[in-house]
Structures are given as C-alpha cells and as structure tokens.
Amino acid sequence: MLYITGMTAEEKRAWITMVVTVGGYAAYLAIVLGRAGDTPLPEVPYAGTLLWVVGAAIVAAIVLHILVSIASPRSDGRKDQRDKEIHRFGDYIGQSFVVLGGVAALAMSLAELDHFWIANVIYLGFVLSAILSSVAKIVAYRWGFQPS
C-alpha cells in the first residue's frame, strides 16, 4: 500500500511512526490494565512492560523503515526542502504535548503522587506528541503546506 500510493519516504515515515506509536501504546494499556483486575493501578507492575514496549516500538519502526525503503523506488527516497519544512512543522506542533507531559509530571511530583502516575503521564505525553506530529505531517503532505 505504501508503495502504490506514491508517497515520499518522509510521508511513509510519518505513517510508520503513527502506526507504531498507537500500536505500542494500545499494547501497553492492554497489558497493564489486563493485569490490574481488582488491584489499584499504582500497585500494578508497569515499568518492565513500559520499557519493553518502548524498545519494541523503536525496533519495529526501524525494521518497517528498512522494509519500506527496500520496497520503494530509489528516487522516492530523496529528501527535499518540502520534506524538511514539513518535518520541522510537524515536530513543532507535536512538541506541545512533550511540554504538557513535563509540566504535568512536575506538578504530580510536587504533589508527591505515585511514580506510576508520573511515569505514565510522561509516556502519554510522548505518545500524544508523536501522534500529533505524525498527523500534522500527513495532513501537510496530503492537503497542502504553505511555509510562512
């Protein structure tokens, strides 16, 4: 599918990042919430799962990038000025959630909340940042981008 629709390599990267991020977070939630049962959430083991899911998502993204690069024509791998501008635009948009996650984690630390909530709000911030950044890039590629 990624080959047929004639996307640039950078647009494919944005799709891969979004799919891997959403898939990874869904898997993490399913595992942690599945373990919870009647146990209060802060007492559910989560750290190992979080690290494994983040690690697996990074590896999956790298493998998918390689596979898509192999399946694409060589000329589509080029990165030009528009790609760089859209990349910067997407990262700028997504950055807001990293800041929000950091501020939320700071507030939760000051309130001496459980580590579970602090770690998870930071992870959620990264996830939302990656999703928003990817969506902004895809929208820019599909519906237009006018640098200002």
Partner: peptide
C-alpha cells in the same frame, strides 16, 4: 526535488 513536491507545487499545495 521529489516528484511529489513538483505535484504539490503544480496543484498549489
């Protein structure tokens, strides 16, 4: 540039 960039410029995107 990429062919997609030429297409985007042509279409005013």
């Amino acid at each position: 540039v990429t062919r997609q960039t030429v297409i985007a410029i042509e279409r005013g995107r």
